Simulated assay, not measured.
Amino acid sequence: MALITVGLIAIMIVMTYFLAQRVARLSRTTTIILELIEAVIVAASVLILRQTFWVLNGGNVLSWGYAIAQLMILLFSLYAMHNFAVTLVNLFIPLFFYSQALYLGASPQRWWVFALALAILFSVILYISHQQALALDSEWRFLLLQLLYAFAWCMVIWSVRPFHLFYTVNVLVVFIIYMWLIRFFVTRVNRVINHFARLDQAANYDELTGVRNRANFDTTTVGVFGVYRQHPTTPITMAMFDIDHFKQFNDDYGHLTGDAVLKHVAHHFNEELTRQTNNGELFRYGGEEFVIIFKDTSPTDAQHIVTSIRDTLQQHPVKINNTQLVVTVSIGISALQADDVDFNSWFKRVDHYLYLAKEAGRDRITVEGDTREFQ
């Protein structure tokens, strides 16, 4: 049973690492789905433990070993997974346990004990879910939370299946020892995750704007070109945009203002792109130039998206020392075509279309060679 419990915790560690590495890059919908999967894994882990004890004990799960293993799984998920769905699972389990006990014939006469235990348990769960780092950093706070959590669960169990006080003391002692070991591993797992997250951020994201950088763009385009060769009927579109008169911002207001403009444009495009589509990835190519790769998106659809983002950009000027600076962009758009022998031929065409938009007077868009003003 110890090996099963450790194995289930290992699975949760892998899921936690997987989400921590990728959640920042995914759409909100995809993130919610992954978090729900995490919650399902936690609930499934509890059911697996129950079924295992059921089989080993001939149809009986009235075991303190089962109780301790279940509490370890539930509490570990709270500390390791920053996930609202997992919190809901922890809140639901005691209600499920009590309801099942009543269904199986337990007496409800100690309902007030269950209500008091539930209030304590809910308070501890909600505190941990909002203060994981704070709870892990302080040994005494961690100890107090474990005592309250385990004691509340003992009260929940006692409300339907009374037992001797001696067992409560044993459970608390054993549980605290186990959870102290869990704390040791959780803190180190968090350090590893944070370390790799910092390395990933430094290698793949632009330090100033926070969006994907040139190195990540080069890596992504290799994969994109390969996917297109395998699925040539799936449209892939590139949009390149340039901040108009960017040098003037630096010359007139200073380089700090220029940096503020870059960050403002990058953040605005990134947020709106995430809100409007799951198929677009934004990169800072260099200087004031940015590139968006749209997967499974036609040039016309890409035009609608970037035009919409450009329009909202006009409504949100950069504010510097009580001065509002309206930023415009020029955009070139083209789809990857069957006669593009390599990525460079596609990129040069998009770059040329951006040049046409700028030559036509800036604050314009060129889509497959057709240049027009924004409406």
Rank of each mutant, 00 (worst) to 15 (best):
N90W: 12
H164N: 06
T312Y: 08
Q276P: 04
T366N: 15
A85E: 07
L3I: 12
Y66D: 09
I9F: 04
T328R: 08
K247L: 03
A20D: 11
E373A: 14
F294G: 04
Q131W: 10
R364G: 02
T16L: 05
R161G: 05
I236Y: 01
F249P: 01
K358L: 12
I13V: 04
V113G: 01
L172F: 03
S45D: 12
P232L: 02
R372D: 08
T300V: 10
H316F: 13
V367K: 02
L356M: 14
G65I: 06
L95T: 13
R372T: 14
I93P: 02
L282Y: 04
I73L: 13
A357L: 10
I13R: 01
R198M: 09
G287C: 05
L256I: 10
Q146W: 04
L88M: 09
E271Q: 15
Q201A: 14
E288G: 05
S334C: 06
N344K: 00
G258L: 01
H352L: 13
Q146K: 03
G369N: 12
V55H: 07
F343C: 00
V124A: 10
I48P: 05
G105D: 05
L74K: 14
T257I: 01
H267A: 15
G254F: 01
D363I: 10
Q146S: 12
V327E: 03
T16R: 08
E359N: 11
A215P: 00
D370H: 09
W140Y: 04
Y205H: 11
Q375V: 15
S330Q: 15
V192Y: 02
V222N: 00
Y66G: 02
G258S: 05
I157E: 13
S123I: 11
T87K: 07
N279A: 04
W112T: 11
L36Q: 11
G287I: 07
R22L: 12
F374P: 08
E373K: 13
A302S: 09
N322F: 00
D340F: 00
F142N: 06
D351T: 06
A150D: 09
L145C: 10
L136R: 11
L144N: 03
L75A: 07
A85G: 02
F92Q: 10
S45R: 02
S138A: 07
L118K: 09
V14S: 00
H164I: 12
V113D: 06
F347M: 03
Q100Y: 02
L91W: 02
F294C: 11
F166V: 12
L208F: 06
I243Q: 05
D200R: 13
I11F: 03
T30W: 14
M15R: 03
V169S: 08
L62H: 11
I120S: 06
Q109P: 00
E38F: 01
A335I: 08
F142H: 12
W140E: 09
H304A: 14
V174C: 03
R161F: 11
I305P: 11
R188T: 07
F76V: 14
S99E: 10
D200P: 00
D342H: 00
V156W: 04
L134H: 12
L118M: 15
E35A: 09
Y353F: 15
R141Y: 07
A266C: 13
I331G: 07
K295I: 05
F294I: 11
